[in-house]
Design a protein around this nucleic acid. Sequence first.
DNA 1: TTCTCATTTTGAATCGATTCAATTTCACAG
DNA 2: CTGTGAAATTGAATCGATTCAAAATGAGAA
Lengths: 357, 357
Amino acid sequence: MREIELAKGTIRLADVAKAAGVSQGTASNVFSRPDVVREEVREHVLETAKRLGYAGPSLTGRLLRAGKVNAIGVAAVEPLAYFFDDPWARALLASVAQICDTNGTGLALVSAKDRHKLDWNIKSALVDGFILLCVEGGEKLVQLTRERQLPFVALALNDDDPSIASISVDNMGGAAVAARHLAELGHRRFAVLATELSDDHVGPVSVAEATRAIYSTSRDRALGYWQALEGFGIPRELVPIYETINDKPSVEAGLEMLFSASEPPTAILAMSDNIALLAINWLRARGLSVPRDVSVIGFDGVPEGGMVEPGLTTMAQPFAEIARRAVKAVLDDVVPAKREMIDVTLVVRGSTAPPKR
Amino acid sequence: MREIELAKGTIRLADVAKAAGVSQGTASNVFSRPDVVREEVREHVLETAKRLGYAGPSLTGRLLRAGKVNAIGVAAVEPLAYFFDDPWARALLASVAQICDTNGTGLALVSAKDRHKLDWNIKSALVDGFILLCVEGGEKLVQLTRERQLPFVALALNDDDPSIASISVDNMGGAAVAARHLAELGHRRFAVLATELSDDHVGPVSVAEATRAIYSTSRDRALGYWQALEGFGIPRELVPIYETINDKPSVEAGLEMLFSASEPPTAILAMSDNIALLAINWLRARGLSVPRDVSVIGFDGVPEGGMVEPGLTTMAQPFAEIARRAVKAVLDDVVPAKREMIDVTLVVRGSTAPPKR
DNA sequence: TTCTCATTTTGAATCGATTCAATTTCACAG
DNA sequence: CTGTGAAATTGAATCGATTCAAAATGAGAA
């Protein structure tokens, strides 16, 4: 008779406990440590809970005591859709997702192009730690995340600050391997399609400009290319570099320029697979055969590279390994002592071949 | 002198309040409603907070009282990586992400192939509501989510239960348009590559089997194809249907069968863009030209369809609109009264043309 | 000087669970 | 019948904030 009036509002654990005639402690145990309560009681409480329409222990209540969310956040200074649109981010996230899957960790996507929003999103994300995609705006991201005082790892950080836990690939070494691969095939006329070297700039870049680029990822790749090519007697000054912003218009503008030269390149060093794929499309539309007329090599090793015709030769990042380390570091809160560096491997597919004689 | 010993443990709002010599209420206001506290005091509290290394109001504490997480979960009965690997899921999520971005909502990915894990993940996801991707295992997903007693919307639900709030596309109507498009181009020999009709089955399906398929999405598409084709005097019995599981091996097995027939089809009705793209690849590898020898039409309208050569003709789902409605429904907790249905539109690209004479 | 009213600040209650030391229950040995 | 130890249960403290009625403060009017 009295019980009926309980129907109003949401049912709390305490309500269930009272209705079942047990203490709140026991009721709690029924849900979180069922083994410690006598079967008979447990059943009764469960039944009562169902009868009252109890939705199970509220996460917030539990959370408050436990302090663990059991989820990690992946953050970037980009619109949220970036995680699904950008091939590199996608490949990385697929790997991160896989790792999370196996150890039952949740995954939250955190991002915003606008600094204020980003700040708020990072502050209010319910996660135990962050993986930062620092391709662009990395320092900002790191700074914002620091304030949150949660463990984090920076990926692809364009900054040499050793106090930031980060995992990066060996850009210089990888780039050198890429250039060497083409040089060994016999190419001598190269051109570089670069990812961002400095803010708000698109177009040809001089050696000096590239050398003092603020984005170390792109800079190191350039250094790697140069180093390898000079081993073949090709001075860096003779290798045109065109800086893009990793999108179609800027890549095509670059190609337009490079291929209107009197002696167009026979080999293109693209600093990302995205650029490389765009380049291949442009070249073929222009009536140039890849790899017969022009060889193209990318960087990253995104899955799309293996699904086009011809397959894209590229320097593949070990996404699974990067994801594994990053997730582990964040979850265990044992952020890598300093900068960790991971090797990339040359994957030869159909987009590179010896030059026409 | 006394203050120094505060350094141990984590700093709580109460610590800051005490150190700053204000009440906890005021300290709280400094962070959550700064306008109500006098500037002088506010500055002092803020400064004290910074000095103590206070990380800002703990989300869990806030959460407990506010009850809103400000995030939605997207769930599927698939491994987590599905969200990044499957083209349809990806396209949809990109749109969902965009909507979330504009209204500052967080996005959490929830999923597991294994029922037990899924149950746990759904139970413990910190979200205000769910968007369910029901392509496969929809009922299970809906059932599990119901227990959580949070608002949710089911997308692409293979079930006609009107008590479930769901948003779907007009599968039958769309399929009819697709088939009509090809018939009007002059095609008369069709074949259907179907998405899942029933559990654990791959291979040719009879009209009867397709008619009583348990997955309504696939069934409705088949019904739409039939309806349109019969308008052109092609009886359903003469249209072979091959059921795939939307992956490469099963699609290729289907094509192998269809094209070893004495009179192979000139037009392929694929129930997903994924299948259509795989089919195009197979056909070209086999030396058949698309669309000269064979026309292919897909269903879904994933971005990849516009980026291949030839472009894929398809029935495009309005992802942005679906996402908008779904997010809105979940956030406002005004789940659509019952089933909502959205139209798909024919997008003609290069993969369809009149048949060779 | 006293009274009013608006602005700030306070302090205690509250959100919904978990946890653990203390207590009760129970079966069985002595 | 008592004593013992294991198992089950209790009840109160706790997590970290927000909220709001009530109290304090201050400025201006009478």
